[in-house]
Design a protein around this nucleic acid. Sequence first.
DNA 1: TTTATTTGGGCAAACGTTGGCACAAGTCGT
DNA 2: ACGACTTGTGCCAACGTTTGCCCAAATAAA
Lengths: 345, 345
Amino acid sequence: MRLDSITIKDIAKALNLSYSTVSRALKDSYKISEETRRIVQEYADIHQYRPNLIAQSLKNKHSRSIGVVLCNIPNVFFAEVISGIESVAYNNDYLVIITQSQESYEREMKNVQNLTWRSVDGLLVSLSTESEDLSHFSKLHEQGLPIVFFDRVTDQLATHRVVADNRGGAYECTRHLIDSGYRKIAHITSSPHISITRERREGYEQALQEAGLAINETYIKYCMHGGMLPEEIGKAMDELLLLPDPPDALLCASDRLTMGCYSILRKKGLKIPDQMAIAGFSNFNSPELFCPSLTTIRQPAYEIGKTATELLLELIESKRPPTEFTKKIFPTELFIRDSTRKAGS
Amino acid sequence: MRLDSITIKDIAKALNLSYSTVSRALKDSYKISEETRRIVQEYADIHQYRPNLIAQSLKNKHSRSIGVVLCNIPNVFFAEVISGIESVAYNNDYLVIITQSQESYEREMKNVQNLTWRSVDGLLVSLSTESEDLSHFSKLHEQGLPIVFFDRVTDQLATHRVVADNRGGAYECTRHLIDSGYRKIAHITSSPHISITRERREGYEQALQEAGLAINETYIKYCMHGGMLPEEIGKAMDELLLLPDPPDALLCASDRLTMGCYSILRKKGLKIPDQMAIAGFSNFNSPELFCPSLTTIRQPAYEIGKTATELLLELIESKRPPTEFTKKIFPTELFIRDSTRKAGS
DNA sequence: TTTATTTGGGCAAACGTTGGCACAAGTCGT
DNA sequence: ACGACTTGTGCCAACGTTTGCCCAAATAAA
């Protein structure tokens, strides 16, 4: 259902001008007399002329819309990212189309396909945990579709990437745990396919190594669906707890994981942080209300969304494909709270 | 940048048919021989023909997209609603365009305008706290644009509404507080302009009245921006606490308010629930981790989004404007936790 | 056999914009 | 006074689909 709005043709007829003159007067391009321009503008204003964006898209081959592919909207981190995306898009008159992969490769592919049929001008992507084969993206990218990756990125495609300093965040937090006296630090993380998993593990391992602590593979647990399935977190925790020499601290690699693990510890009645310390990546904004308050590594999610979108719009609007691709890395913030403070320290 | 994809014309030329025949064969309408249909379909499949949705929109006067107007994406409740919206839209091949009003009337108007220029087929709306004048919606609605309201609804427009049982939820929770022995129950709520504020207050007042308790106006605090501005919550709390006879329990009317108030109570070092009990509407999914665990009223946000979208699509796809408009009311769930359990009870 | 009806398919206009090209009138230099 | 520009505007095709209308052939009815 279209809302009856006046068109260029209407203006042309009313003013006894040709379509093209009106069109040109309206977007003050080309050589149009000041007089004509004024008359047209005035008429357009009075009659509330609005260009039909669909028609423009058809003609111009671009739709002023961008597609977003991410795993799950209610995830705090992504919700904040979206908010950042939306704000930049809004200011630039772009429209944002959001799709959720729910950590499924299948769905991610379908969404991307759908988005391209819709002729989005560019894509903002955070990979699903299942995605190993990235050909659905590289094909499009080769055809010239601008893509910017954020959070869960890849180096298989030559394009911009926007991430938090995952390695640094994990490193800093692990160091903090070590400094607090913990020696048996486990790492509960997501699928090894995605970039954040690798980077966070590297930070974790680096801190251990620098402290002269051995890396214990049995202390590293992968949740292949990033914690979407509650049972995978439970399983990982059980395995850890049943170890002959169980860990005394937990570094969790994502929002869902952090919440899930914390919740399990509490349910099992373990004393935090004495029996088990816990810290993790999380953008939840009241972790101080937990009991004990929760040590978190916070990512500048809004900033990430904002920057990724700015980069994408730049890509879209630049005439020629850029030769250089940046990887923006935003620092994380460690908030030390009671869940990692030993009673005595 | 359009991805070179084959068009109907290409197929027509290759198969030596006319555009119209191909078009009709593809959407098996009209009378086309089985033979032709098969040939066209096959060719289309092999060459991965995808209809150009922009062109279709221009021709058909609809875009298979819906606009969403709500206040703030990172708000848990709305994030879940969006997730529900997205799932229905996805299954019906509709595209979802999300805008945030940030509780600003100004922005809400601009967003709606923008959305209609984009020729969305329908609107899903949750009003901002500032919106009193609804003419930007009613104008469009009169012109035939399908609109479904959810959460913060209005009866100024004759259309579908989807909400939680706000009155019931508030009533049940207030009763619970009364039953737990609290007698001085304050209500911290949002702007009186929006429907949820009124409904929740009604539930609160009804419970008080049934219990023979007086309604104390000084116990009802309105945060005009729904708690978006941290200082408004602080001010409301201060005023309550400084009352000669301060309340002993708090019923908070929204996610942000509940979190904000809880946080302030903790910061001020008040004993929950002995000095002050607190309960509120919240969709945060780990309130049991708070200290003390937080009593919440949960709304079926995902369901609300899902249902609103189903209703909207029905409206969009039905030929004639319906004569009846439904108001779907979903029950809320009260989760009683320690923040409202007196030590002795 | 003629006429009416069905079946299958083509033509071309339309949706609202845009932009290359053409062209008339005015301006300038010589 | 005559060509060479410049300026302002109009014409028309194109973007990819859809669809009303028309028409040819085949079939059925008379």
